[in-house]
Design a binder for these strands. Structure first.
Length: 287
DNA sequence: CAGCCGTGGTC
DNA sequence: TGACCAAGGCT
């Protein structure tokens, strides 16, 4: 299936800014952090502004972490901004301000897990790495395994399969990684796959099996309303939008339940997403 | 390792 | 309309 998928990618790949040569490895890394659980459309404007302000890791490392959190805006999971800032610091100190090319070195950076390390090595440096994200896992689950969805958590079997399917040639492997991801993002989508335009629909194991529905336990969605996450989000929105430290009384207005509100605020302080000044006011860290 | 961590668009 | 979903990582 490599031929059809790579050929499809050559014709249908989106022209995304982090895929252009001028993005560099740093641009690829920034995009990968932002794209962790956040759709492309929302990332695009934030990415552009981020790269304009901080074109190299050392530029980001030179500003307080709160500036990164503020620039992160409404992308969600603001701890990613903190980790990207910390990763920039680590690269400035330990890697001469450059994005590492070795998977193991990438993996050692804060906020860089198995997927992101492989993605940066492959997309930024052209390395031969099995890149296993939710898109690729879904494509493999359908095309190879014959199920509608992959397992909830990445399994050893999936890693073996991804390595087995990875082309030997380095450049081809990198294209294959990007192509399978793009196929999952544009065609082999979670809810309504567009099998009519899929380059491998004729050999897709899931289709050949009659497109069976999902078996096993339902995929649990994450609760949101009323959770600490919602409270944290509101608190962070206030801190982000204020260029001055805010008084506690301002934060009190975002949530009725004082017990939950205080717990959420303590959580933000513990996570270093917010800090309390000696005068009792709160702000983004160092900003 | 199951649970936690934001936000907004979609069907 | 609300559940699902979007290029995960960390504990």
């Amino acid at each position: 299936m490599h031929g059809p998928v790579v050929a499809w990618f050559a014709e249908n790949a989106r022209d995304l800014p982090w895929r252009r040569p001028e993005a560099g490895a740093w641009g690829v890394m920034v995009s990968e952090f932002m794209l962790q659980q956040t759709p492309v459309a929302r990332v695009l404007p934030v990415y552009e502004e981020w790269m304009r302000r901080w074109p190299r890791p050392a530029d980001l490392a030179a500003v307080p972490p709160g500036e990164a959190v503020r620039a992160w805006g409404r992308l969600g999971y603001p701890r990613r901004a903190l980790r990207l800032h910390a990763a920039a610091g680590a690269m400035t100190e330990r890697h001469g301000g450059e994005v590492p090319t070795e998977h193991a070195h990438l993996l050692a950076l804060p906020g860089v897990g198995e997927y992101t390390a492989a993605a940066v090595a492959s997309f930024a440096h052209g390395r031969r790495q099995a890149v296993l994200d939710t898109n690729v896992r879904r494509v493999f689950a359908r095309a190879v395994v014959g199920t509608r969805y992959p397992p909830n958590a990445t399994t050893a079997a999936e890693r073996r399969l991804a390595r087995a399917l990875l082309p030997e040639d380095e450049a081809t492997a990198a294209r294959w990684a990007a192509a399978t991801m793009e196929l999952g993002a544009l065609v082999c989508t979670a809810r309504a796959p567009r099998c009519g335009v899929c380059p491998i629909s004729d050999r897709c194991a899931w289709r050949l099996a009659g497109s069976p529905e999902h078996q096993g336990p339902p995929r649990r969605g994450q609760a949101w309303a009323g959770t600490d996450r919602q409270v944290r989000g509101r608190l962070m929105a206030v801190l982000r939008e204020s260029m001055e430290p805010v008084r506690a009384s301002v934060l009190e207005r975002v949530w009725e339940d004082s017990v939950q509100r205080e717990r959420a605020l303590r959580g933000l302080l513990a996570d270093r997403l917010a800090e309390r000044l000696p005068d009792g006011r709160y702000r983004l860290p160092g900003a």
